[in-house]
Design a protein around this nucleic acid. Structure first.
Lengths: 203, 203
DNA sequence: CAATAATGGGGAGTTGCACTATCCAATGTC
DNA sequence: GACATTGGATAGTGCAACTCCCCATTATTG
């Protein structure tokens, strides 16, 4: 298919497709002449993925580039690849004090790299809560650790068995793309729980 | 304190404080003359809150305005207030098909307003996953519902008992400010679970 | 086969947002 | 009384993500 068909198939303006091509988010088509290139279903899929990462997942162009690089990498080591994708999506951290984060993680009994960017993100999140003057009710902490632990365990358990590349794709994209769903579900669950406790209008 | 002290206390440039005043995110100080106003600790707290919402929580100025309006409202009905804050932070939804979202919610057994913005957000998130060509392993769905349900139930159970205003503040801010923490914790939990299953390097 | 439309490629312009800089007259401070 | 600071307002900046436009070269069509 030509670029205009690719654009129509994904509902993305042609100019924007060209922009993504320039930015290297979508691989170039197969040139059949100096003014013609062929695109296929993989380009369609890639373009949709880019849109999802830029839209709902709210990544920047540079972050998308990093994530795609990690996915495209035929790296056999899932650990290394996941780490690279994490690093690509991690916002510039400003080195908050990691000790509260480490205390949390110790409480959960998780075995992780204390110096990794994931821990730094937790540290940042805790620092931001603190700076905003928001004291987290201690009773919620265990719920957070258990709920999140349950989710993450299931996700890792259900990684596709097949190729390493497929597992990488699932791990990287699942981490990022599922985030909006989890947050939205939490809000729905809030509504349900609030109704139970506060007796809001029943449906 | 004067504006320069307020700025120093919160580590926000004076020009930016003025900007927030103009935008109505921070209430004006008490004028003592035409070129002097007094600010107090509440202004400091408010300013820090605004920074947290604009920074880690990634809200826009307009969204912050909406959230603060909900928090400031002496509305006794927590339901109405939470709904208003949700609406303020909800990105412009483009009306995805709600049936997959409703199926999910039915599976969880939650009693919620099927036409509310929360459900629409779930619908959008599911549509985005679909558009990106990412098929969620079905086995994870229950983990998502259980994990999120556990978290939300704890949060609602632990709302402060005191004044309605305080409960509103906790509910609104907790919903928004905790999000980065949950996502960061999930990534840490991933690392832990991945180590268990894949035998990554142990710490 | 001539006229029209579309393409790849690339530079420049636009939009939206969150600031940031500058100005000014009126005050506060030393 | 000299100098810095303030509140208030307007204009400008920087960045990210597009979007527009141009051009020489094909493709398509009547």
């Amino acid at each position: 298919m030509r670029i205009s068909e690719l654009a129509r198939a994904t509902d993305v303006p042609v100019a924007t497709v060209k922009y993504y091509l320039r930015e290297g988010l979508v691989p170039p088509g197969r040139l059949t002449s100096s003014t013609q290139a062929q695109y296929d279903d993989e380009h369609v899929a890639r373009l949709r993925l880019v849109r999802a990462l830029l839209g709902p997942a709210r990544l920047t162009i540079a972050q998308v580039r990093g994530v795609l690089a990690a996915v495209d990498e035929p790296e056999p080591d899932l650990f290394v690849t996941l780490g690279r994708a994490q690093h690509a999506t991690a916002p510039a951290t400003e080195a908050a004090d990691p000790s509260p984060a480490l205390a949390l993680i110790a409480r959960a009994g998780w075995d992780v790299d204390p110096a990794g960017p994931e821990v730094a993100q937790v540290a940042d999140a805790l620092a931001a809560l603190d700076a905003a003057g928001f004291a987290m009710p201690g009773a919620n902490v265990d719920a957070y650790l258990e709920g999140v632990g349950r989710i993450a365990a299931s996700e890792i358990d259900n990684l596709p068995e097949g190729s390493a590349a497929e597992a990488v794709r699932y791990a990287v994209l699942g981490t990022i793309l599922i985030e909006p769903l989890l947050l939205a579900l939490r809000r729905v669950a809030h509504q349900h729980a609030a109704r139970r406790r506060l007796g809001g209008p029943s449906s």
